[in-house]
Design a protein around this nucleic acid. Structure first.
Lengths: 144, 144
DNA sequence: AGTCAACGATTGACCCATCAAACAATTGAA
DNA sequence: TTCAATTGTTTGATGGGTCAATCGTTGACT
């Protein structure tokens, strides 16, 4: 075993810090929260989709999805309607204005991403991505 | 410019997912939240410390620090007293029971960390840590 | 001495996430 | 057919975080 895992500990700490520092800056730079933008991105790709399908894509709690969508509906970014074939489902769809607004969020986001990964070569990015992927797999294997 | 930054985007996405997946598992495995354990760790190292000093170490909002410490005080993990030389400051200190409990949290945490970084050689860990550090620096430079 | 600015801590309002419970609609089996 | 289980959505309670406003204390300046 290694020396009481100080290097390992540091990495976990860093991952945490990165999230904590990046997340609020992302919101300030792009003008929208990450979760909400993810929701909109999915909607952008698919025309119309049911809430649960959306929830599975974005991987946040269905209660949270409901609340986000209600707010987005108020802002007229999104419309919702029941599936006429099965009234349990509700379909969600971007409005035209919503679709337009996303484009601007998108460019803000891309600029933000570029800043975060400044000075990373493509090779480095691939290496990093692979390592992160391995970490994700390790986490999945952990039994709670 | 790269191809609409899909690889870069993926990395940001991964960092996010890792946090979202790791954080709740950490809590379930160790029995305590990351922030709270960080607070306790600092207290473990320093005997007695003022709240603002603690807040700066842990890098969460002072309002959150106050609320955590109040709860930890209720659970008798921690004691608080005013600095007699300057009543604005409050000093925080682990109780003896608190100190004991942390030991067990610690070993749970170390086991968790080991699982997350399973199959990472020391060399890989160093590489990863360096890259994460560069990302942190990049984030710091971003103007909100 | 009196006043004002600065500072640490606290509180309230808000956002976002979770879980668990409730609800409505559908399905399927006795 | 009826009733129980399942499914998608919603709501309420709770926990964690932020910011802004407030309070009490201190220190410095006149």
């Amino acid at each position: 075993m290694k020396n009481s895992c100080s290097e390992e500990e540091k990495i976990l700490f860093q991952l945490n810090e990165i999230y904590k520092q990046m997340s609020p800056k992302f919101e300030r730079c792009t003008g929208i929260s990450q979760s909400r933008l993810e929701l909109l991105h999915k909607l952008f790709e698919v025309d119309e989709i049911s809430q649960t399908a959306l929830q599975k894509e974005v991987n946040i709690d269905s209660a949270a999805v409901t609340r986000h969508l209600k707010q987005l509906e108020l802002k007229e970014m999104v419309t919702r309607r029941k599936n006429p074939d099965d009234n349990r489902f509700t379909f969600v769809k971007l409005t035209d204005e919503g679709r337009e607004k996303i484009a601007s969020f998108r460019s803000e986001k891309e600029e933000f991403i570029r800043k975060v990964l400044k000075d990373f070569s493509e090779q480095e990015q691939t290496k990093l991505s692979n390592m992160l992927h391995r970490i994700q797999n390790n986490i999945e294997e952990i039994q709670y």
